[in-house]
């Protein structure tokens, strides 16, 4: 019975986090800290930062990864599943409602004018996201070359996205190996 209560608490905590933060990823950290560290005392701040680091270096949605990790630490596999369900619920409900409304009014002329204006905004915001990302991720020569090659490949060919992700991970590992070997040879 106590177990069940804890699982529901996990569900509700992540439902609140998912339902009250916009954008996900980094913007979610303060909210996670407030709910999990300060309010519930479930994990320490260091543990949260660890969870977050794991969430960022595994594939998938960062917020979902963090939710699963925290839930698993608290209550095993069931905890991970309940936390994730909590995170998914608000998106599912809100998006379904908004999408259903929007689809009903799609033929409306005013809505079409409005969406045309929104298009420009989407482009501006997304371009800005790319620039922020590039500033953060292009830290040295290797990264710039890697980014340049992939960008050309994407624009000129139809290589599947999955293939690019896998090959670039291998490139990272091979490059580190080469670098380590050179570093060792330089030493007398």
């Amino acid at each position: 019975m106590n177990d069940m209560k804890m699982l529901w608490q996990l569900y509700w905590a992540f439902l609140r986090i998912g339902g009250l933060t916009f954008g996900g990823g980094l913007t979610m950290l303060p909210m996670l800290k407030y709910e999990l560290v300060e309010k519930k005392n479930w994990i320490t701040e260091e543990e949260l930062v660890d969870c977050y680091a794991i969430g960022q270096c595994t594939p998938g949605i960062i917020a979902v990864n963090t939710a699963t990790f925290v839930g698993y630490k608290k209550k095993g596999v069931a905890g991970g599943i309940f936390s994730t369900l909590g995170m998914v619920t608000p998106s599912l409900v809100i998006i379904t409602l908004v999408a259903a409304c929007l689809e009903n009014f799609m033929d409306n002329v005013w809505l079409q004018h409005a969406l045309m204006g929104v298009r420009g905004i989407v482009c501006a915001l997304m371009l800005n996201t790319v620039i922020t990302l590039a500033r953060k991720s292009l830290v040295d020569g290797f990264c710039c070359v890697m980014c340049g090659i992939v960008l050309l490949l994407c624009l000129l060919t139809d290589i599947p996205t999955i293939l690019i992700v896998v090959v670039s991970a291998l490139c990272g590992i091979i490059w580190e190996k080469i670098r380590l070997r050179f570093a060792r040879e330089e030493r007398p």
């Binding site: 482009c123 996205t161 490139c171």
Partner: peptide
């Protein structure tokens, strides 16, 4: 290994997103 893989993936993902945008 994880660190090295992500070192390679991060700039590639930036390019993927840039191309998509």
């Amino acid at each position: 290994y994880v660190k090295a893989a992500f070192y390679g993936v991060r700039p590639a993902v930036t390019a993927l997103i840039a191309a998509a945008v």
